[in-house]
Design a protein around this nucleic acid. Structure first.
Lengths: 143, 143
DNA sequence: ATCTAAATTGGAATGATTCCGAAATGAAAA
DNA sequence: TTTTCATTTCGGAATCATTCCAATTTAGAT
């Protein structure tokens, strides 16, 4: 289940997307920092080390492209930069209120706060569940 | 369980917060538009109608104050304005990908997409579960 | 080697939100 | 009622992540 650079590069080809030095550097940054759920800034800084020329605009465009093509998953927050996850499997994000770190808690497993604390040492103070999709009205209309 | 203006005003007093025309207008806007999960802009516009003088800065400051004091709940999104909910009971937010409307789906009730669709007409395409709290490291440190 | 659509660039624009110092004002005390 | 002062309000500037743009470069197919 662990995704590697080659997998992502392969997906790029499948989708007919071009392989550029910038994209390779970004893929590298994504995979090497997978456990930190990196944001655009971190990826930008890491990518710069590998490819001499990368702009922030490109990083944003590329992360968007990758997300839309299902290579990675974008985690959107309000007070935090967006964060990116190369792990597409079902899991819960445990987000620290103080340091902002995001840990993964894989399911199936108990979602009881007590069990989560015992297994991961993470104390839950707030739960947020959103279901995204289409409401009755929007389903009626063409779109 | 339906919260009224008087309840919110009472809470203001309990917390030692001052009752101002601006705050009354904002409370009014929050309660009267509860089902729309209004954002700062809508509240601003509605509040203007009731109180001759209200600034956007005040609306933001007030919504923040109210949220911090538990009068209302702030729903944070990335692509959307923050939205506010006067209903603090446990429920799931059903967010339309197209029009952005947010409906409440009260729990306990099945979270199976099929059941949700049958009961609310809402088709789920994506589920997002976040648990916020404190990670192991941050719990160790004073703060 | 040529060609073209796709990718990259930097800088400007956006939009929600916060920050600031100054002015106004609830409401408690005198 | 008047005084007092911490709280609230104000408008405008600042912030910050992100998107947009028009111009330039380039990957990869022919």
């Amino acid at each position: 289940m662990k995704k590697k650079k080659e997998d992502l590069i392969g997906q790029l080809k499948e989708k007919g997307l071009k392989i550029t030095p910038q994209r390779l550097a970004i893929i590298n940054a994504l995979v090497e920092n997978r456990y930190e759920h990196p944001g655009a800034t971190l990826i930008f800084n890491e990518a710069r080390k590998k490819a001499k020329r990368v702009s922030l605009s490109t990083v944003y465009a590329t992360l968007k492209e990758f997300s839309e093509n299902g290579l990675i998953r974008q985690l959107e927050f309000d007070r935090m930069e967006n964060r990116y996850d190369v792990d597409l499997s079902d899991h819960v994000n445990l987000i620290c209120n103080r340091c902002g770190k995001i840990a993964d808690y894989s399911i199936p497993a108990s979602l009881e706060p007590r069990d989560i604390a015992r297994k991961s040492g993470f104390v839950v103070t707030d739960t947020r569940l959103e279901l995204h999709g289409y409401c009755r009205n929007c389903l009626k209309r063409p779109g």
